[in-house]
Amino acid sequence: MDRLRARVDLAWAAIAALTLCSIAVAAVLPAGPATNGLLLLAAAAKGRWLALDFLGLRDVAGPWRGLLGAWIVAVVAVAWLASLAAALRPV
């Protein structure tokens, strides 16, 4: 139980820190696919942390972690490709 508690506490700290970093990155860095990529990468990392330690998938069969990871990757990949397409559109 101590190990579980430590994992959950660490996951919360990491997700909260990445959220604060995302707010700062969005405010400071110029708009565009590179900044969007950083923000989406942070979102994917937070989602993965949540799935493994809050949702408890770290200790279940690999395919379940893969499925949820695939959902996260698919959503952020589509979002990044869309932002790239928007940036490449002729004005």
Binding site: I15, T19, S22, I23, A26, A31, G32, T35, N36, L39, L40, A42, A43, K46, G47, L50, A51, L55, I72, V75, V76, A79, S83
Partner: peptide, 14 residues
């Protein structure tokens, strides 16, 4: 989990 993805997509991406 859903909100962690919704947040950047709606509020942060430019």
């Amino acid at each position: 989990l859903v909100w962690l993805v919704v947040y950047p997509l709606i509020y942060l991406l430019r």
